[in-house]
């Protein structure tokens, strides 16, 4: 309970004291060093730093549009997942065999769990009075090791992802735009199961690539293999005709350049 001053007077029947406190800033001239008041002196300087930061931020925003890929298609099993950059180090860590599979506990709780718990408990793990970083080499050293690991894993994840995309070939990375003037052969019109995904004019669809120039980067034997065995989201055995018809279709597709 607050201390009660018997002589205090109040505004009406409220608890507000009738005595007004002057609204003036104290002077910090008696303090050691060059102290200044937060309001308004320092806050204005802080706003200037914020303004510089905001200009950089807006330049980034205007020069780089936020990415938006195709609409989510849960059936597309060929899509390479890629988390936002600040989760890459965790994502990459779990790719290593010694923290995956039956050791996945180590990967999920062991390494990051210990690291994050240690961060939360840092004030008790590093309980000495010394604050200077170079005078507490264990804390500083562990932090540098952790930083190195985070940067390395992030870099590795990006490296792996780039390599993975390159391995999938340019067709997967950037599908060719459909040519509206393209006219598919009569043979194609008979392949209803192909058309259902790749489209009546081979223009491709949300789950299947454009085939209008498929001969440029696929050899006839590869095309045949894809038709019989499937690829990515494409199931095997979609072609229902005879081997002779299959050969004709493959030759036709390979001739598209």
């Amino acid at each position: 309970m607050a201390k009660i001053d018997k002589d205090a007077t109040f505004v009406g029947d409220s608890r507000i004291s009738a005595k007004r406190i002057p609204n003036v800033s104290p002077s910090y001239s008696e303090y050691p060093g060059k102290n200044e008041a937060f309001w308004p002196d320092f806050l204005l300087k802080e706003w200037m730093v914020a303004a510089v930061c905001l200009v950089g931020f807006l330049v980034l925003t205007v020069s780089h549009d936020p990415p938006l890929t195709a609409r989510a298609n849960p059936n597309d099993s060929s899509f390479t997942p890629y988390p936002d950059w600040y989760f890459l180090f965790l994502y990459q860590l779990l790719k290593y065999p010694w923290v995956a599979g039956k050791y996945v506990l180590l990967g999920i709780l062991g390494v990051p769990g210990v690291a994050f718990t240690a961060m939360i408990l840092a004030p008790w793990l590093d309980a000495g009075k010394e604050r200077r970083a170079f005078r507490r080499p264990i804390a500083t050293g562990l932090m540098f090791i952790a930083l190195f690991c985070i940067f390395f894993l992030t870099w590795e994840a990006d490296h792996h992802h780039t390599a993975q995309l390159a391995a999938k070939g340019p067709a997967a990375a950037a599908p060719a735009p459909a040519d509206p003037n393209f006219k598919a052969d009569g043979m194609w019109a008979a392949q209803t199961s192909c058309i259902s995904c790749h489209g009546g004019n081979m223009e491709g669809g949300p789950a299947a690539p454009n085939l209008q120039k498929v001969g440029t980067n696929q050899k006839p034997e590869d095309i045949q293999k894809i038709i019989t065995e499937g690829k990515g989201g494409m199931p095997p055995g979609m072609f229902k005709g005879s081997d002779e018809d299959l050969k004709k279709l493959v030759d036709y597709l390979a001739s598209l350049k």
Binding site: I16, I21, N23, Y31, G33, W39, K45
Partner: peptide
């Protein structure tokens, strides 16, 4: 202020010294 006594609250927000070692101006 007479009704809500806001000066102490306002001074509480505004009045605190910013020491030299955290001030990039110095």
């Amino acid at each position: 202020d007479e009704r809500l006594n806001i000066t102490p609250m306002w001074r509480d927000l505004a009045d605190h010294e910013v020491p030299e070692h955290v001030n990039p101006a110095h």
